[in-house]
Design a protein around this nucleic acid. Sequence first.
DNA 1: CTAAATGCAAACTCTTTGCAGATCC
DNA 2: GGATCTGCAAAGAGTTTGCATTTAG
Lengths: 148, 148
Amino acid sequence: MSVDERVDLAEQLRAAGYRVTGPRRAVWEALCVADGHVTVEELSARVADIGGDADQASIYRTLAVFEELGLARQSRLHETGAASWEVAHPDEHFHLVCASCGEVDHHAGPLVTRIREHLEGDHGFEVFDIELVVTGWCARCRPGGRAG
Amino acid sequence: MSVDERVDLAEQLRAAGYRVTGPRRAVWEALCVADGHVTVEELSARVADIGGDADQASIYRTLAVFEELGLARQSRLHETGAASWEVAHPDEHFHLVCASCGEVDHHAGPLVTRIREHLEGDHGFEVFDIELVVTGWCARCRPGGRAG
DNA sequence: CTAAATGCAAACTCTTTGCAGATCC
DNA sequence: GGATCTGCAAAGAGTTTGCATTTAG
């Protein structure tokens, strides 16, 4: 996965008139290697881990470019505080955040698409983006639930 | 509406062991009078408008209490920046944010309930809260849409 | 009278910005 | 070579916190 996306990156950047730079490669690799969501601070540490170099300000700027190109996606999974970033997946999905263990589950399914169809059909609302965050207890943490 | 809710406030506060104070009444009234979502800054101005008095720090603390009591609800409707607050409504609804005119539409319907049922039934996920924000163009602003 | 709430100001976190110097094409 | 990008540091926005004073019960 990360190799394909790394190849894509240079093409996508050039196609949009952006330059291919060390920090942009490093941020992209760190984002691809990360399993799921990362904050800018985490991303910064991961960039360092893989031997890359990118100032935090550059990470913010880089993520803004990635978002514009549709390569990365920002979420606000935590009530307050830092934004979370992930590689943009083609499938529409939403996030289940467990209030107990903190795990963020990606829930793919027809629901988000159905929301989009519903709005575009009945309401003439042209959807750019759907942000759906569900907070609760996952099956493992739920008291009396199907404990693991 | 605001009268009923104002009566509720004192009861709800006392029932939970909180005191009924001027700033809390003022913030509640300002929130009830507000049509839809307001930021803390807007709320602060509205409190002053209605002749109330509440420091911004107190507004934050007050809103935290209201949220705990289930009286108010926080949303992150704007990508970045201030949180939005509204009176908590019993019906589950979600928010349509127009990227052009900025209008925030409340969309009530079975969708949010369906999401809840889907997750609780199939996935054993116990839902506390569903935050659904859809960004796009409303019917009026949509190019080539039903102008009107 | 006492615990709780307020106001004020300072601190804190996350993010953006200005600018001189480095870098990609 | 020239526009773009970077790092650094400082500014900015939103929110939280510490503490002396006020206030509700």
